[in-house]
Write a protein that binds this DNA or RNA. Structure first.
Length: 270
DNA sequence: CCCGGAACCTGAAGGC
DNA sequence: TGCCTTCAGGTTCCGG
């Protein structure tokens, strides 16, 4: 599942292969992938444009063009962007193909059709709904404490709330809570200053390590060249069916929090 | 505003 | 072997 480290990797690896090139054709094999505007206008506003840069905000890719449009991509759970030369066999479940003028195409594959693309005029339409970026200097223990104060929801649910912190998904929420020895059902307001400090450190540590490993390929995540990331090989608890705790040896448990599978060490996480 | 649950979607996995 | 059910989860929407 693309979360911050996966989207960051895609951004970094896509950028040198697309920057400065023009979109020569857009094929939408599933029109619903163009959330806004509709399929026809999406095509006409994208074809002919030159890609000038890519940034990431939360789990969104924001691709800038030589027009006043920003091309926004969200891969949701199962989406990936694969670059292949013209004439190559499209990956299975390809929903859109963006052909470039350099002899390659970007294939947006997405088995579950959750992924979306939009053209927007203003980055703030996306950025305004999102909390701080956890890997910037802006994200401090103090800011985290402010944002968790008065919150009665379980910390696991709060970490998944993109308006609270942007970019954390199910896997890295579990990893960060394990690294901080905090039980996923603890309420936000119940965390002590020391625990918030630990959690802040754990979030940054876990996300940075995953970026360095080019993301985690637990499901259908692929890098733009089709290879996998290796962050999941270092997971302590996430997707840990049958694993034992690397710290105390207790069996990793699975529970459901807010309809999300949640893995934890019941002995280490209090 | 805050919280929790359902819906969206389809392939994989498990039960019988 | 095959049909059926359940599960996976990022975001958005809705009811309380």
């Amino acid at each position: 599942m693309p979360e911050l480290p996966e989207v960051e990797t895609i951004k970094n690896e896509l950028l040198p292969r697309v920057r400065g090139h023009r979109v020569s054709d857009v094929t939408l094999s599933w029109e619903g992938i163009a959330r806004q505007p509709g399929a026809d206008e999406f095509r006409s506003r994208l074809v002919g444009r030159k890609i000038t840069g890519i940034t990431r905000r939360g789990k969104y890719l924001i691709i800038s063009l030589d027009s006043d449009d920003l091309w926004v991509v969200h891969l949701k759970m199962t989406g990936s962007l694969i670059i292949k030369p013209d004439g190559a066999e499209p990956p299975q479940h390809t929903r859109a193909v963006i052909r470039l003028d350099n002899g390659t195409s970007i294939f947006f594959r997405d088995p579950r059709k959750f992924g979306v693309m939009q053209l927007v005029k203003d980055k703030s339409t996306i950025a305004n709904k999102l909390g701080p970026e956890p890997l910037t200097r802006e994200f401090t223990p103090r800011l985290l404490a402010q944002r968790l104060a008065q919150r009665t929801a379980p910390i696991k649910a709060l970490l998944l709330d993109q308006s609270l912190i942007a970019g954390i998904g199910n896997m890295y929420a579990d990893e960060a809570l394990f690294a901080a020895s905090i039980h996923p059902l603890r309420s936000g307001s119940s965390l002590s200053p020391e625990e918030i400090e630990r959690l802040h450190h754990a979030i940054q540590k876990v996300l940075k390590a995953a970026v360095n490993s080019k993301g985690a390929s637990v499901d259908t995540y692929f890098r733009p060249d089709g290879t996998i990331g290796t962050a999941h090989f270092s997971f302590k608890v996430a997707h840990g069916k049958g694993k034992t705790c690397p710290r105390c040896g207790a069996p990793i448990e699975r529970m459901v929090v807010r309809n999300r599978g949640t893995y934890l060490c019941p002995r280490c996480q209090k």
